[in-house]
Design a protein around this nucleic acid. Structure first.
Lengths: 255, 255
DNA sequence: CCAAAAGTGTTTCTCATACACCCATGT
DNA sequence: ACATGGGTGTATGAGAAACACTTTTGG
């Protein structure tokens, strides 16, 4: 066990009596792996510690915590990330979501409760950086990216949640274009930005029109950096200017 | 007490042990009164039956019920309406939403529970017909429309929920234009449709451009009916064609 | 000099906006 | 005949979409 795990466990123990065992949050963390839209899933173990598959990273909420705080806690426990945008997008609360006996059994073991009643879950969404190897001090040491069209069997209604999340992601990006930059590195090429859009929308985009559009966005600013050591003309790096973004947004929203 | 109230109470008694006292639904039923966007609120009584103000129509969920079912139940108990679109738009779950002592006291009385813990509420939204007088067999005999910029003091975070709902309403109408027809009568004039938009968006619209736009929508079809007995040129009635709407939508969504 | 990706302009079409007058009807 | 609201057309500008060639660099 990694030293910091003990610390985490202690924190959890201290707060355990304050777990509110009726409402959970689940995070659909979308990213890109091998040029395809992917979701980060964590490994699930049975009572004996055997790995029995994957699930969305999630948690019951604590009594003192808002839903957003719980979601950020889960995000951080899973990826170590902190400052990215998380959006609450839907609440899943069908009584039949825990109808599968194995899922229910697992829940009762995991939560150390005799009888788990219905759990309503609030689903959150983020587009997040593809941190390749997660810091083992985080709660889950096994987190893996799965392409959204190759999702393994998942417990509860997690598959349905992921499907809804992919739809929601596209709508969210229209409203709040800044979220792509949660995914991209701080310096990125026009190609990277375009590819990200293409993968999320699952649609090719015209290169020239894309450049034109990008240049019209004041908040995507060219830097003096260019690529190095590539076997073709070097691409320019751009960066996201948050201040300019907020200005342009507020101007836009006044109408 | 109205005879049907007894029936309702019996139904409630039967199901009482199945109330899931951790999650509720609240419905923001928007409509128009006196040419202004308004919300339907129901009267709230204290333990002695004294009326102590208004609140959003809402309810704890039953164990056997999905969230959507609970929301439709509340809609129906409040207005008698059944077949309108309700949209789940956000979950409100801050632990501080029940921080007001009076609100908490009221809750405990209303729910006949000794100790109410945190309640997470799932907020729903609808644009609904302005049924002027509600059938007294419905659960609340006092329901009133309040203009959204003249909301009285409300318990919990209901004011915040209404504000979020108004924003959401506009976004929803862009995505799903059909919902205005939940509000309008089955035959309506161009003026009524335009006024409805103007009030919801709080913005005047050009008459000619509106007609042009409306005529381009295949699913708004002119009928042969025209107004009768008005002291000016009679307006034509239009109707909403749901079949054509779905066709046009699915065509649009394929791209 | 060749392969490989970067970068750049013009035309066309659609859609939103702005704007003013005649029409039908009841009193 | 007049008051009242219903209904119509045209011109302009902005932004989306379609489309092909030259530039730069490493090997």
């Amino acid at each position: 066990m990694h030293p910091s795990d003990i610390e985490n466990m202690e924190t959890q123990e201290k707060r355990k009596d304050m777990l509110y065992s009726h409402v959970s949050v689940d995070c659909v963390l979308l990213g890109i792996s091998e040029d395809q839209l992917s979701v980060l899933l964590v490994e699930r173990s049975d009572v004996d510690g055997n790995k029995i598959g994957f699930k969305l990273p999630g948690s019951l909420i604590y009594d003192t915590e808002t839903l957003d705080e719980a979601a950020y806690r889960v995000l951080n426990e899973t990826t170590g990330l902190k400052r990215i945008s998380l959006k609450q997008f839907r609440c899943f609360g069908s009584p039949s979501r825990t109808k599968n006996k194995d899922d229910l059994q697992w829940l009762e073991n995991a939560l150390k409760l005799n009888k788990v009643s219905r759990i309503v879950t609030v689903a959150y969404l983020a587009l997040c950086k593809n941190t390749r190897k997660f810091n083992p001090s985080y709660k889950y040491d096994e987190a893996q990216w799965f392409k959204v069209d190759q999702i393994p069997h998942l417990p509860f209604d997690h598959k349905e949640i992921i499907e809804a999340a992919v739809q929601e992601m596209r709508a969210w990006m229209e409203k709040e274009p800044a979220i792509v930059f949660d995914y991209l590195p701080s310096k990125f090429t026009a190609f990277q930005l375009r590819r990200t859009y293409e993968i999320i929308y699952n649609k090719e985009m015209d290169v020239r029109n894309f450049h034109k559009k990008m240049n019209s966005l004041e908040y995507v600013v060219p830097t003096d950096d260019i690529q190095d050591g590539v076997a073709h003309r070097a691409a320019r790096y751009y960066r996201f200017d948050k201040v300019k973004y907020n200005k342009q947004r507020s101007k836009f929203n006044k109408n």
